[in-house]
Amino acid sequence: MTIRSMTGFGRAKGSLGEEWTAEVIARSVNHRFLDVTVKVRENEIDLEPVLRRVFSRHVARGKVEVALRLKRSTPAPTVIAIDEGLLEALLARFALLAEHYPVSGRLEARDLLTIPQIFSVETSGNGFTPDDLAALEAIAREAALALVAMRETEGALVSADLTERIEFLEKRLHRLSLRRGEIAGKALETLRERLRPLLSEPGLDPGRLEQEAALAVDRSDVAEELQRLEGHLEQFASLLSSSDEPVGKKLDFLAQEILRELNTLGSKGRDLQMIREVLEMKSETEKIREQVQNLE
Rank of each mutant, 00 (worst) to 15 (best):
L70S: 09
M150A: 07
V29I: 11
S56K: 07
L112V: 11
P130G: 05
L70V: 05
L90F: 13
A135S: 01
A26F: 09
F9Q: 07
L262W: 07
R172K: 02
P202T: 04
E182P: 00
V79P: 02
L204M: 06
G231Q: 08
H31S: 12
D83T: 05
E280G: 10
Y101I: 14
S177G: 09
L265P: 15
M6T: 05
Q293G: 01
S200W: 02
G207F: 09
P75R: 06
T7D: 11
I275R: 14
S124Y: 11
G62H: 06
T21S: 09
R11A: 04
L147C: 08
G125K: 01
D221R: 00
M150N: 00
L279C: 06
I139S: 00
L51A: 05
E122S: 15
E44N: 13
L133T: 09
L107F: 10
L272K: 11
T264A: 05
A187I: 12
R289Q: 12
M274V: 01
R219G: 04
R32F: 09
V36W: 07
K250T: 12
L188Q: 02
E42T: 10
R52F: 03
V222L: 11
A26M: 06
L199Y: 03
F128A: 02
V54I: 13
R180V: 13
D46F: 00
M1D: 14
D131Q: 14
L279S: 08
Q293W: 00
A12N: 04
D131V: 09
I115D: 06
A138T: 06
E212V: 08
E137D: 04
L173T: 09
A22M: 02
E261C: 11
V29R: 00
F236R: 06
F33Q: 12
N294Y: 07
E154L: 04
L68H: 00
S200C: 07
L195I: 14
H174M: 08
T74R: 08
A134V: 03
L262C: 10
A89L: 13
L96C: 00
T123F: 05
I25C: 06
N43P: 04
S73D: 10
S120Q: 13
E210W: 13
R180N: 10
S15A: 09
S241V: 02
N126W: 13
D221P: 02
T163N: 12
P130F: 01
H174V: 15
E201R: 11
H31F: 04
L233S: 04
K39I: 08
L70E: 08
H100K: 03
Q117C: 01
L87K: 05
D221Y: 00
D244P: 12
M274T: 05
L191S: 03
